[in-house]
Simulated scan of single mutants.
Amino acid sequence: MATSSGKLLRFLESKKNLAGSACGVAGVGLALTGAAGAWWPVVVAGLYGAGALIAPPERTAPPPFDPNAELDVLRADFGLLREYLAGVELPQAAGDRLTELMGFYEALLDPGWVAEVLVADPESVHAVSRAVRRDVPECVDTFNRTRWWARLTPGGESPERQLERQLDLLHAEAERLTADLREAEAGRQQSHTTYLEERGQRS
């Protein structure tokens, strides 16, 4: 019963009902002046319906997502990834490259102003998330699987070389990402310089 009352109240307060009622009142005014004749109920109902149709639809506000909460979840997943990697044996060259790559992600996700810059760019957050949750684990896991098969059937490109190429590509992607974020900050600094120059010219 309370739900039905709430729906009725929302309808009475809706833009469609208010607009329809306003037009309906205008129809009543026409009826009182005699302009609507004997068909005044139809005129009033028609004007109400027309007003309800032309009124803009009700807008439901989107939920207030907190982008920082997404980073908190990503940091937790990054911690899981570090635990996983700690128990994996990798060749020296690939291991060093992976350590350097993980340093990139750690620096970006570390709470502080850098993370604030990161979270302001959803594409960058997506790139880091994809690397942490899919790319790096996939690189390491497929290396371990392929290395086992390579021991049984040697030949072809070594799994170690494939892993190094994958990590090089991820490293290049991380460098591009940080360069884009740095460029965004440089643009922000330049915009402030321009603002101060223009303000100085006006004073």
Rank of each mutant, 00 (worst) to 15 (best):
A76K: 04
E100W: 15
R82K: 15
R82I: 02
R133L: 10
W149N: 11
T153H: 13
G155T: 09
V119A: 06
E164Y: 08
A69S: 05
A184T: 04
L81W: 05
L108H: 04
L71K: 00
R147C: 06
D135L: 14
V73H: 10
R147S: 15
A127P: 01
E183A: 15
L85S: 01
V119N: 07
G79K: 12
R145Q: 13
E173C: 09
E183F: 10
L181R: 06
E123D: 13
L90K: 05
T146S: 14
D180R: 15
A94G: 06
E175T: 13
A69K: 06
E123T: 08
P122F: 11
E157Q: 14
R161G: 07
S158K: 12
N144S: 12
A93K: 15
R151H: 05
G87L: 04
G103F: 07
N144H: 13
V88Q: 14
V117E: 12
D110M: 08
A115I: 02
R176D: 08
F143W: 08
S158M: 08
E173M: 12
A120P: 00
A179K: 11
S129Y: 11
L81K: 02
L169N: 12
G79Y: 07
P111G: 03
V128D: 02
F143V: 04
E164D: 11
L177D: 01
Q92L: 10
E70S: 06
R176W: 00
T99S: 08
R165A: 14
V88D: 00
A86Y: 12
V140A: 03
Q166Y: 12
L101D: 01
F78R: 05
Q162F: 07
A174V: 07
T99M: 07
T146W: 14
A115R: 15
N144L: 09
E164K: 11
A127C: 04
A115C: 11
V114S: 04
R75K: 08
Q166D: 13
L101H: 03
V117Q: 13
A179P: 01
V88P: 00
F78T: 02
G155V: 07
S158G: 11
L170T: 01
R182W: 14
L98P: 00
V88C: 09
A150R: 12
S158T: 14
Y105W: 14
H171Q: 10
E157C: 07
E164C: 12
E157P: 09
E138V: 09
D180H: 08
Q162P: 02
A93V: 13
V125P: 03
L90V: 02
L163H: 03
L118W: 05
T146P: 01
G95T: 02
A172C: 10
E157M: 10
L109V: 08
D168K: 15
W149T: 06
R130C: 03
E175W: 08
T142L: 13
T146Q: 15
P91K: 07
V117R: 15
R165N: 12
S129R: 14
V132K: 11
G87F: 03
A86D: 12
G95N: 02
R182K: 13
F143I: 03
E160T: 14
L81A: 00
P91F: 00
L152H: 11
Q162H: 13
Y84T: 07
D110L: 09
A174R: 06
G79N: 06
P111F: 09
